[in-house]
Design a protein around this nucleic acid. Structure first.
Lengths: 135, 135
DNA sequence: GCCATTGATTACCTGGAGGTAAGTGCATGC
DNA sequence: GCATGCACTTACCTCCAGGTAATCAATGGC
């Protein structure tokens, strides 16, 4: 709770700080949250948490992602230093993706969020049912 | 780490489960992540963490949100049971928003994420600089 | 020769999140 | 009698994340 309050203060502060930038929404916290909110980043991180994977291996395990989005999301993760890309000079060149130390460190706090989500889903669904019934 | 791995497994499982639905993206975990990823939900939760606030009070404290989005986001949070709305029958009717118990419980895991983000920003920026230099 | 696989890139298109601006009904202040 | 504040609602528009599909260059199997 205390940590939460502190975090809230920092969060709001940074957010406001970014708001004063105006030109670009370069709030560092928002920056991270955008990745978490996008459709594929966290899914890929979670798949890579199990160990390094090749491009098409990921593609097969996540059938509903397009090649374009897989490439693009991996690039973004690589750019942010969460994922490392390694090319092997085999006959048909193969590429391996693995989480970096930084990438692995995300799994812990993100895991807490997922745990919260899973625990809270019943309450949320109940609240929604009540809300929708009254409208 | 262990918790993280477990969370990852549950996450991926649920995600896939939702993928099998096909018709609607009703993955419960994605459902929660969408709120966290959207532009205003978490900012409002963080502002309300400090205590109950009135509509226009929030609007003044977050100047760059539109009335439309403030109303809409508050409604969504209310529907999910994260925020409670209380109407006072004063001469110009006033409305107060406060976090529910469920809403407060989000602050803890979300705070971990923010902490991670703040701690990791230097690494991320460095990684970006390196990546951008090599392209 | 034909086709598949590997890891991409590119052009084109759509849906929906979110912004802008105006309007609403009521009450108080000047 | 006009403006202001409160808590919205509505119509309209814009932008971009993400999807679809075609293409690429090299290689090995049939």
């Amino acid at each position: 709770m205390q940590t939460g309050q502190d975090a809230a203060a920092i969060f709001v502060e940074r957010w406001n700080e970014a708001a004063s930038f105006e030109q670009t929404g370069t709030c560092p916290v928002r920056n991270v949250l955008d990745k978490i909110g996008d459709k594929w980043s966290m899914l890929i991180v979670m798949y890579l948490a199990a160990g390094p994977k090749r491009f098409n291996q990921l593609h097969r395990e996540i059938p509903d992602i397009s090649q374009k989005m897989l490439t693009q999301t991996l690039r973004d993760l690589q750019r942010d230093g969460l994922v490392a890309r390694q090319v092997f000079d085999t006959k048909p060149p193969s590429v391996e993706y693995r989480l970096t130390t930084l990438g692995h460190s995300l799994i812990v706090p993100f895991g807490h969020l997922i745990d919260w989500a899973n625990q809270s889903i019943p309450s949320i669904n109940k609240a929604r049912a009540v809300f929708d019934a009254a409208s």
